[in-house]
Amino acid sequence: MKLDIVIAGVGGQGSVLASRVLAQAGMAAGWEVRTTETIGMAQREGSVVSHVRIGSQLYGALVPDQQADILFGLELAETARALMKLKPGGVIIANQGKVVPASVSLGLSVYAEEPIRESLCRTTKRVMLVDADALAMEAGSSKTVNVVLLGVLSALAGLPFRRDDLLQVILESVPKKAVAMNQEAFERGRKIGVTFHDRK
């Protein structure tokens, strides 16, 4: 067994937490795990890609191109940027929300929202584009976007860990006063995830 997940987002969106909890859930189920991040030099605002591998007989942490079973995107354009990691027929779980970089406001580049969405939908049939920004706000904070999407992921069939284990690890990793909010975010994501699953 080997499950490869690539997480794409912008610094400050909690991709490192997402990769850590996925790995910990995998460990709780008795698997070997590997994670790593590619972070630019900025503290915030830069692209961040995390790699998570769960399974047996693992070597490095970097997921090769076209090998990710799941592409997990916290931000729309960043999801597209990591598209070459997705395996043919793989699953995309992504936030349709955007973080518009300063370069766009300055007129140095463009954010072509519709074409980006289309490129995601064209690549694989199994795309779950979610308005995670809105769901996170409903749960109580824009900071829970990552947990909303983990909830969506938890609805997938055939994961190598239990949904409850994933939720528990998440709740153990967030500050005490944010536990209820994160649980709420996870459940909201999960509900949406189930609807995607039903459609399939």
């Binding site: 030099m41 900025a42 605002e45 191109d65 597209a80 970089p101 766009v104 072509a112 490129s119």
Partner: peptide, 24 residues
Amino acid sequence: AVEAAHEHSFELPPLPLRTPVLCA
């Protein structure tokens, strides 16, 4: 160069430049 055995092809639209910047 990655061996170009692309089993599925995808075309990417231009993506926004996200160079690191000083924080707000």
